[in-house]
Each structure stands twice: as C-alpha cells, then as structure tokens.
Amino acid sequence: MQRVNMIMAESPGLITICLLGYLLSAECTVFLDHENANKILNRPKRYNSGKLEEFVQGNLERECMEEKCSFEEAREVFENTERTTEFWKQYVDGDQCESNPCLNGGSCKDDINSYECWCPFGFEGKNCELDVTCNIKNGRCEQFCKNSADNKVVCSCTEGYRLAENQKSCEPAVPFPCGRVSVSQTSKLTRAETVFPDVDYVNSTEAETILDNITQSTQSFNDFTRVVGGEDAKPGQFPWQVVLNGKVDAFCGGSIVNEKWIVTAAHCVETGVKITVVAGEHNIEETEHTEQKRNVIRIIPHHNYNAAINKYNHDIALLELDEPLVLNSYVTPICIADKEYTNIFLKFGSGYVSGWGRVFHKGRSALVLQYLRVPLVDRATCLRSTKFTIYNNMFCAGFHEGGRDSCQGDSGGPHVTEVEGTSFLTGIISWGEECAMKGKYGIYTKVSRYVNWIKEKTKLT
C-alpha cells in the first residue's frame, strides 16, 4: 500500500490518463441519441435557420407576430419608411378606419389613436360632414345658397324668414311668412316636400332668348283662358290664391305678392273693366268669414305684352289694390325667389296649380277651390304637342294621358313649387288646347323671366 501511494504521488498524470480511459469505455446513459432527441424537440425550422439574422431580410411573422416588435424591426421587413409607417399605425392600436367614419364618399386613412378623412370636392370637416359648395344638395341650405369668396357655403332665406341657429334652416321672422300653410287642420295635408338634388348652379339658368321682337298675326285659340281631375282644397291650404270678379264672377285667378299687390295673367284683364279681388276665398257660393274683398285701382301688364300681336306672350300683369290686405292664416303671400332659384325650383319637376275653373272641358265651374299636382314636361315634348308657338318664356306641365289639367277660369292662378315646406311661385296658368285632352298640356308663363320686374313694381313704400 505504501508503494502504491508513492507511485500516485510521483505520477499524477498517469492516474488522470487511467481515469479518462475508464470513462470513455463506459456506456453513456444520461444523453439520448440524435434521433430520439429530435422526437422530443420537434420544432419547425425557421426561415433563416442556421444563418445569422443580421444578414437576412426581415420576416413579418418572425419579427412582429411571434413577439412584439419595434418600429426598427418592422422597418427591416418593409425596407421602406412609408410602408412601415402605414403598417405601424394599425399594428400599434388597430384600424381606426374600420367603422368607416368618413361621410359623403370620403376616404379614410388610419393613424395612431386617430384617423384622417380625405374629402371629395365640396366637403370638409373631420368626417367630411361639412358642405362647402352650393353645387351639392344646395349646400344643405333649406332655401338659398351662395358661395363666399373663400368658396364656403353661405345660406340665406327669402323675405319674412331668418336663418336658424344651425345656419342652414329657415324659420319665420314674421307672423305670416310667405308660402307657408298655417291653418292647423290643413298642415297635415301639406304636399310632399321637395329635397334639393345635386345641381350645376353655374349652368342652372337656361341660355334662352326671349323672342321679344317676333311679330306674329293673332292666333285663334280655343278655350285658351284655361282644375280638371283635381281635388277639393281645404280652407287655408292655398292662402296665396285669390279669385278675380268682373263682368262675371271667378273669371280668373291670381296670387298675393304682398298686402297691396296681386300677380295674374295679362290676358285676364281689360282696361276700363272694374275688377274686384277676393282673398281668403274657399267656396265661392258661401260666406265663410275668411274672405277679404278689395278693388283694383291700377293694372300693370308687362311692358312687352301686346294682345294685338299675341294674347299669351309675356302673359303676366300686376294688380294694385285700393287697401292693403290683412295677412292671416287664410290670406298669405306666395314666396318669389330670384331668377336663378325660381328656375331651379321649376326644374324640380312638379308643381301645384289651383283655381275655381271648370271641372271638365266646357263644363261647370268649381264651387270649392280645386288643386292638382302636375309634372313638368320637357321642352321637346311640349313643342311636338301643339302647332302653336311655345315661346321661351312659357313652359308645359300636365299629363300625356289627359284627364287632369287646369281649365277655363283658372287662368292667372299660381303654379307653385314647394321647397322644404315653403311654396314659391314658378308659373302662372296661361293657356292650353281644350282641357285635359290626351297628348295636350297646360301652358304656363315662366315666372323666372319676370321676377325682377315683379319685385321692382310691387315694392311697398
């Protein structure tokens, strides 16, 4: 034993070699072989497995989906700052455009905790909710729209109204504003409101030439003092309507412009014939205590009207009353817009006519005020429907199939267009061939041609 100890002390290297040989010859039971080890760690190889990531292109799944990435790591994937920024906006807080917040056709661009709407022409605001041009839906104005110097929408209202708090709607500024039905039992019968379409306001006024200088022999019209197929109006439903009495009662109609003036057809009036105007009328054979009678003290036909040349060209006249009318729910003026808007309103496509005229061709006159909704007829169809001249200051309205029309005794009465609950004068009943005849239409004086003249002559002093 002493000898062994001496050998170990003198030859430590020998001992180490012996131990190493023993270990190498022993069977290893701690580690699995290569094949079995792979069965336990069965993990798919990654895209760049075996390579240094710093030297390969980034992978979106590896960089940002398996674990949260930084902007720089995302930049490695896209290799483009702009594309990385677009991805980053949604990656950080989701897609803010998912709810489609942009209105009126706006395009949404996502941002971090926010979004941006790219608005089409005519709109602005956070969600493109603000109209900035009158060309689109009248700028959301209830009545009139004008573009300011910086191309912003400025709404306005006709006389007797003021802008509401929203700067879009119009509200009454006087007790009985024009064009409004205020009798409670008839307010439910107000005709369907007309909503502004998209309009090209630059070209809204037709490029028409008034044929002022045409000389033409007097034409022989049949029954051209021209509501057939209409309905009984309720008291106060058309408070701007008046009836004219002269040699015979209810020979023509008219509309209240203001307390002192009536507008009617020029062919209705004769110099030297006494005319009485009755406002607030409903049943011409009954006294309903809503009527107001006034005498006409002055007749002003349009300066281009000449019955000797043509009885229905420039067929418009103004009547001055001896005493002002007292405005109330049964006696209310009709609204008159400017030339541009009167023309736009007419193009809405349908209007209402009213009167006490004959209820059928050569038949009896109506006792109760009649009204009828009539569609506008395109000019080409209008011209083809008659052998008589249709001037540019006239328009056609009615039904091709016949059966409904204005008729004798309705002449001078109103053709009105309702705009968001307020009625505007767009025409004056003038003439036609018979009444409600198939293929024939009622012919009306186009008020847009005469609004400046009306307003100039009827100013209240």
Rank of each mutant, 00 (worst) to 15 (best):
R3K: 09
V4S: 14
I7H: 15
A9V: 08
P12Q: 09
P12H: 10
G13A: 12
C18I: 14
L20V: 11
G21M: 15
G21W: 06
L23S: 02
L24N: 03
S25M: 15
L32N: 15
E35W: 06
N36M: 09
A37P: 15
L41P: 14
N42T: 13
K45M: 12
R46P: 14
N48R: 09
G50T: 15
L52F: 15
E54V: 04
F55A: 15
V56E: 15
E61Q: 10
E67G: 09
R75F: 07
R75C: 04
E76W: 05
E79A: 14
N80D: 13
T81L: 06
E82R: 10
T84M: 04
E86D: 09
W88K: 11
K89S: 10
K89G: 14
Q90W: 07
C102A: 00
L103D: 06
L103M: 13
G106P: 01
C108M: 00
C108S: 00
C108H: 00
D111Y: 08
I112Y: 11
N113K: 11
Y115V: 03
F121A: 04
F121T: 04
G125Q: 00
C128S: 00
L130V: 15
D131N: 05
I136Y: 15
K137D: 15
K137Q: 12
F144Q: 02
F144W: 02
C145G: 02
K146I: 10
N147T: 15
N151W: 06
N151F: 08
V153I: 11
L163C: 02
L163I: 07
A164Q: 07
A164W: 03
E165C: 04
N166A: 03
K168T: 05
K168C: 06
E171N: 07
A173F: 09
V174K: 09
P175V: 07
F176L: 06
S182V: 09
Q185P: 11
S187P: 15
T194W: 12
F196V: 12
P197S: 11
D198R: 11
D198P: 14
V199Q: 11
D200Q: 08
N203P: 09
T209K: 08
T209H: 12
I210T: 13
I210N: 05
L211A: 13
L211M: 15
D212Q: 13
T218Y: 09
Q219F: 10
N222R: 14
D232H: 11
D232S: 13
A233N: 07
P235G: 05
V243P: 02
N245V: 09
G246L: 04
K247P: 13
A250S: 12
A250R: 07
F251C: 05
C252F: 01
C252G: 01
G254M: 00
I256F: 00
V257C: 02
E259Q: 07
I262H: 01
V263D: 01
V263E: 00
V263P: 00
T264W: 01
A265M: 02
A266S: 04
E270F: 08
G272S: 10
I275F: 11
V278N: 04
A279Y: 01
E281F: 08
I284C: 04
E285C: 06
E286T: 08
K293C: 05
N295W: 04
R298H: 05
N306I: 05
A308D: 13
Y312I: 09
H314L: 00
H314K: 02
A317V: 03
L318P: 00
L318E: 00
E320V: 01
L321M: 06
P324V: 04
L327A: 03
Y330A: 07
T332N: 04
E340C: 03
N343Q: 09
N343R: 07
F348Y: 15
G351T: 02
S354E: 02
R358E: 10
V359E: 06
K362Y: 06
G363W: 05
R364E: 13
S365I: 10
A366Q: 13
V368A: 11
L372D: 11
R373V: 06
V377A: 07
R379T: 15
T381V: 12
L383G: 13
S385G: 12
K387I: 04
G398E: 06
G398D: 03
E401I: 11
D405W: 08
D405L: 13
D405M: 13
C407A: 04
C407R: 05
Q408F: 15
G409Y: 11
G412I: 15
G412Q: 04
H415E: 00
G421C: 02
L425N: 02
T426W: 00
I429S: 14
S430K: 02
G432H: 08
E434T: 12
A436S: 12
A436D: 12
M437L: 15
M437T: 14
K438H: 15
G439P: 07
K440W: 03
K440F: 04
K440V: 04
Y444S: 01
Y444W: 01
K446S: 08
R449N: 15
Y450F: 04
N452Q: 11
W453H: 00
I454Y: 00
K455V: 06
E456L: 07
T458C: 06
T458N: 01
T461A: 15
